[in-house]
Amino acid sequence: MTKVTFIEDNGNQIEAIAEVGQSLMQVAVNSGVSGISAECGGACACGTCHCYVVDNGLVTLPTPDGDEADMIEFVIDPKANSRLSCQIAITPDLDGLVVHIPASQT
């Protein structure tokens, strides 16, 4: 069981139980998270599933590369902890993951 938490820009918190094999974007969409519209469906082509990963000491994610890194460079308000949630595959190691949704996407 992998528990992930989305914090919307208005402070609203949504906790979800993610299944291994899903992408974090799919978990967000299925949980009705506002601000993750993920319009291209996970092809790394739209940048509308951008999120900030919170450093809470529980989860460490690898640095984005390839298409994801290219897109993150040019999303609105990119930060060092920016990720595209469509490129994050859920694994048991991600239990406790917390992400913020950017204000620009609400």
Binding site: V29, G32, A38, E39, C40, G41, A43, A45, C46, G47
Partner: peptide, 20 residues
């Protein structure tokens, strides 16, 4: 309307380049 998960820009690798 929100969420509004339409497909007006298509989907997948051919997702509309000029959507923004």
């Amino acid at each position: 309307r929100s969420p509004n998960r339409h497909v007006a820009f298509g989907g997948g690798t051919h997702f509309c380049l000029g959507n923004h």
